[in-house]
């Protein structure tokens, strides 16, 4: 035990980190969504959205949390890659004929694939919005804040590739949905929470979370695109 790093020592420790970072990212999704929903208010709510964006990039506690967030994303991905490499190594010769649908659902078997889609999406997403908000030169709104609202609006409505942006966004949200569908309840199992009374409830909440959160995220650009 002493020979391995305490952080990533055993297969189980890797899984604990997967679960913990995963759950943390799930919580972040709620916070992120809360802000995004303001976009549904249209132009009248633009200043509120920009205020929210500024708050998120400047308020000290949020700032500290955000570094934890970036780290979590990277670590979740890195840990996932480590696990996947080990898993591949554990079966060097594949079966000629497999019928996995007989015993497990698709999402649970494709977490790495779904995660990869999400990682690409997050990189693009951050380049488009987060980078520009943080480091880019943005026009200011009436209240003198960086006008992220307009950036979003242009991106999903008037830009020449707006439809493509919307489609990519929706596909990414579907990937998140499937990732959460398995990941939410799976993280509890990994952390040892399995109880005949509570586990069915956790599973139900997990399904609800996996459907509702990404759906609400996805509605926003679709709504903006259709309402332009």
């Amino acid at each position: 035990m002493a020979t391995k790093s305490a952080l990533l020592g055993s297969s189980l420790t890797k899984k604990y980190w997967m679960a913990l970072t995963g759950l943390f990212l799930s919580v972040f999704l709620i916070v992120h969504l809360a802000g995004n929903l303001v976009l549904l208010g249209g132009k009248e709510m633009a200043e509120n959205f920009n205020a929210y964006a500024e708050f998120m990039t400047t308020f000290p506690i949020i700032k500290i949390t955000s570094y934890l967030l970036y780290f979590s994303i990277l670590f979740h991905a890195f840990d996932g890659i480590l696990l996947t490499i080990q898993n591949r190594k554990a079966r060097p010769v594949k079966y000629h004929y497999e019928k996995p649908s007989a015993n497990s659902n698709w999402a649970s078997r494709n977490m790495a694939f779904l995660g990869t889609i999400m990682l690409f999406f997050i990189v693009g997403h951050m380049a488009t919005f987060w980078w520009r908000m943080k480091f880019g030169e943005l026009p200011l709104d009436a209240a003198g804040r960086k006008d992220l609202y307009t950036v979003v609006e242009v991106y999903f409505t008037t830009a020449s590739t707006a439809l493509l942006h919307v489609l990519i966004y929706v596909v990414a949200m579907i990937a998140i949905a499937f990732h959460l569908l398995h990941g939410f309840q799976s993280s509890f199992q990994t952390l040892g929470v399995n109880h005949p009374k509570y586990t069915p409830l956790i599973k139900k909440i997990g399904v609800g979370f996996a459907v509702v959160i990404p759906a609400l995220f996805a509605i926003i650009p679709v709504y903006m695109y259709l309402n332009q």
Binding site: M1, K15, N103, S108, T190
Partner: peptide
């Protein structure tokens, strides 16, 4: 037991339930 399990080269649990 977990240490030995890892040494044997088994993969990790993804909770697929299969």
């Amino acid at each position: 037991m977990v240490r030995q399990m890892d040494l044997e080269g088994f993969g990790n649990c993804t909770n697929t339930g299969a």
